[in-house]
Write a protein that binds this DNA or RNA. Structure first.
Lengths: 341, 341
DNA sequence: GTGAAAGCGCTAACAA
DNA sequence: TTGTTAGCGCTTTCAC
């Protein structure tokens, strides 16, 4: 019960009868040390259960901490989970540890998190920027050598490295797939807010595909949803239109869940669907869900690689890397337009 | 380009013409400060873009760092993502930040992560323990006041708080559901390794349900898989048995994906299924997937609440909290046994 | 091969 | 209301 304090370097030194510096030397394999001393020190360390205080070390050494700060909108979203896992894989070999937080797409929460990360002197800062967040304040940190990377979306007010999916091209390919099966009225169910980069890009890709096909862009066919439930309702509303869509394009993984669930609920097998971002069990649906798959592992890896290069002194211009998406045709896009139209 | 050093408290103090302590006071709203001084300090802080070094502060204050270390097997698994998000939600109000890492269920990686977290003097340590990991080394830290909580599985070699799902009861309820529809040969597809706590508990629940129903426990009906792909193959093997199961129980979310995908691939609608842990789109499958849903949010919340109570001085005995599961009947468990048997 | 002293950036304790 | 001194746990620097 005695809240005994943790042993320090000095405790170990005292135990062995050497100076603190000697212990430090042994532990960091810095400078020389006699075999005998080394042995004694190591024994004492084990005996006392000494664990060096990394914060104290960092303070003295002055360099950045061996952590990497990552802000995502939602830890529970599998897409961001996959990105985070990929980042971790890539930076682990460099001894970096992940400091993570979720912003809920709230600029204030994002700012609070990045401020905390900066106060901890993270080695690298990665952010999935929230709509409305400004990142001008990060400029000074970047200037002092902190790599800042935006992930999934570009940030505002700061020119720095950025890794995104090929949202526009992907959406265009997905919608073109639907057009190819004769659909002329294709609904778009996007996420919110409408100013969200991914939403805008994917909508733009949708519109490009329509234009390519000479189809009109009917605003009535464009819906939005915050979450899976809303996406289901938006789907129902679209299908209840006087002149309803015969196909739907889902703007992200969460929306896709809602769209697919609603079609299943209402037994509408006649509506073609393509979703942006892959979802679990897509291939087990009937029909199996055709998707524009993102590559979260590659996004994470690229972001990490870019940041590490900066850490190693890469001073080249900020670049935006676009990670390709891939149309995975599984069937749901192939419902032909019925004669009713 | 000049890798100028970051401003320190002393820089701010010099800029204003006061002592470092005064700046410290203003920033921490410690002690008094004249309106004028406060104003000047704040202005200088903004002008220099000063951000206090949290590590230095922590070192001096001596308490634990305002971080919480969390080790999960896989950041990309939505179950652990949901747990992590829930923990973060709960501890954010206390100003704690998440330090996260994935162990890949490897005891060495787990140990490396916990050691790093301990070296950072985390306020709380939460671990989803890997099979084969020993946690005796954590005892001394717990003794010094560090709350240690095992999540999803009990740890070995250390009696401390633990939060788990009602694995056994849940599995039993799920299998009983299948028994209720006349199934006498029910396959179990579990995860690996077989020594995994959740695997063993769920298998035990499965066996209890069989025993309750007076059904034999046929070892041939028990399969294992590491990942989704393997689970699909295991499913195929089970169904290819001379006397195959008419129903399957999937032992976790990943296995469920494989089982369901394989049944879809082979067009086997006659096989009943119940899965442990909910999966996205379960309700959109045909038939919709009946699951024993876990409650990752509640698991995370409970783990966090328990740990915070310890931080606040709760010295009561270590307790294991079991978070209830819930059978969500959606249809896939209701395929009746065909006459062929 | 080892140690003493100084200092990293910050705050506790005591003055003034 | 403000400043001074000392020291958190560690490493750097320089001496021996």
């Amino acid at each position: 019960m005695a809240a005994n304090r943790r042993p320090t370097l000095a405790d170990v030194a005292r135990e062995v009868g050497v100076s603190a510096k000697t212990v430090s030397r042994v532990l960091n394999e810095d400078g020389p040390a006699s075999a005998r001393t080394r042995e004694q020190v190591l024994a004492a360390v084990a005996r006392l259960g000494f664990q060096p205080n990394l914060m104290a070390r960092n303070i003295r050494v002055g360099g950045p901490d061996t952590t990497i700060g990552l802000v995502v909108p939602d830890l529970g979203n599998p897409f961001f989970g996959a990105v985070a896992g990929s980042i971790e894989d890539r930076v682990r070999e460099r001894g970096l540890t992940l400091l993570m937080g979720s912003s809920a797409d709230d600029p204030d929460r994002e700012r609070a998190l990045t401020d905390k990360f900066l106060a901890r002197r993270v080695s690298i800062l990665m952010v999935v920027p929230s709509v409305g967040a400004d990142h001008a304040h990060l400029r000074q940190h970047r200037a002092v050598g902190l790599p800042v990377v935006f992930v999934d979306r570009p940030g505002a007010g700061l020119a720095t490295d950025c890794v995104v999916s090929s949202n526009r091209e992907g959406a265009r390919a997905g919608v073109t797939h639907l057009v190819g099966y004769g659909h002329r009225r294709i609904g778009f169910v996007g996420d919110l807010p409408t100013r969200l980069y991914t939403r805008r890009e994917r909508l733009a890709g949708y519109r490009e595909a329509l234009r390519d096909a000479g189809l009109p862009d009917d605003r009535l066919l464009i819906a939005s949803a915050h979450d899976q439930h809303d996406a289901g309702e938006a789907t129902a509303r679209l299908l209840a239109l006087p002149d309803p869509p015969t196909a739907l394009f889902a703007g992200n993984n969460i929306v896709a869940l809602g769209v697919v669930a609603e079609l299943a609920r209402s037994g509408r097998k006649d509506v073609a669907v393509v979703a942006f971002d892959d979802v679990a069990l897509a291939e087990a649906l009937e029909p199996a869900l055709t998707v524009v798959a993102q590559n979260p592992e590659e996004i994470g890896r690229t972001a990490a690689t870019t940041a590490l290069a900066r850490l190693d002194g890469d001073r080249s211009r900020a670049r935006t890397v676009t990670v390709p998406t891939r149309l995975i045709v599984r069937g749901s896009g192939e419902q032909r337009v019925s004669a009713s139209a």
